[in-house]
Design a protein around this nucleic acid. Structure first.
Lengths: 141, 141
DNA sequence: GTTGTTGCAAAGAATTTGCAGTCTA
DNA sequence: TAGACTGCAAATTCTTTGCAACAAC
């Protein structure tokens, strides 16, 4: 039933990529992680960065968040959400309680909710100001 | 300041693509819309389907939802959310009230919230049953 | 007749993968 | 030394785009 466990090896590449994510608070893309990792280990390749990032995600050591069809990575693995600025692309963490009411409703239909993801889109304070956008009745229901 | 407005033309392609989305309740991808549109208009091209879909979205006639880095389209344009089955890929609509509390919190920082998107991932009833997964404490916080 | 649209195929962007050489345990 | 891992480049996948022919209005 269980597949023979192949033991992982600790390589410089893995350590560097992981450290880069730990040191980043801006939700970098794989390409950005690659750039930063190269400063520490100039010979590392983009393919390896992709492979290591994927591995770290599946080990639960980092989290992947997809914005605009592109993967970004973050060190926080606890339950939280994101705000994405449509102008500068900045991704910011947002703390929101889980909507248990809705989850229950879904579960009552026999569904199994394994993960929940909330995304808030709009303008960050800086861009809102720059564009002179007043914050009136934003998101509609 | 304002760009000369170019008037749109009503073509068979636009009508067919729009109708396909209106007739679909399964959140089809562009490729799927293409397949269905071809039944009505065999000469239509995938590129045109992409162009028309994008136009319909920007006109607010249909909505785009991105799942697994791929665009899907739906006729519903009102505020609602989605459940995505990790097993069969089915996308299902979910009604959830907007979390005004969180929006307010974000807006108090000077941010402008323009859109909110909730996604619930897990197993649909059918797949949960097939896999024999009991619905215990699912999503964590 | 204009000029917005289409079909086609080539180009892009992000990510994955095959493979032979390399390095960890 | 076995075999997991890496660098490299080619391959994939989804989507966009340039362009000449076409067709609304």
């Amino acid at each position: 039933m269980e597949k023979t466990k192949r033991r992982k090896r600790n390589t410089r590449q893995k350590a560097v990529v992981y450290q880069v994510v730990l040191d980043s608070s801006d939700h970098p893309t794989a390409e950005k992680v690659y750039e930063r990792a190269k400063r520490e280990l100039p010979t590392i390749s983009l393919g390896t960065v992709y492979r290591v990032l994927k591995e770290l995600v599946s080990e639960g050591k980092i989290k992947e968040i997809i914005v605009n069809k592109q993967s970004h990575f973050e060190k926080r693995t606890d339950f939280h959400h994101h705000f994405i600025c449509r102008e500068c692309g900045k991704i910011e963490d947002v703390e929101t309680p889980l909507c248990r009411y809705t989850c229950k409703k879904v579960e009552n239909k026999g569904y199994v909710v394994e993960d929940v993801e909330y995304k808030f889109y709009g303008l960050c304070d800086r861009c809102a100001q720059k564009l002179g956008v007043l914050q009136e009745g934003s998101a509609q229901s």
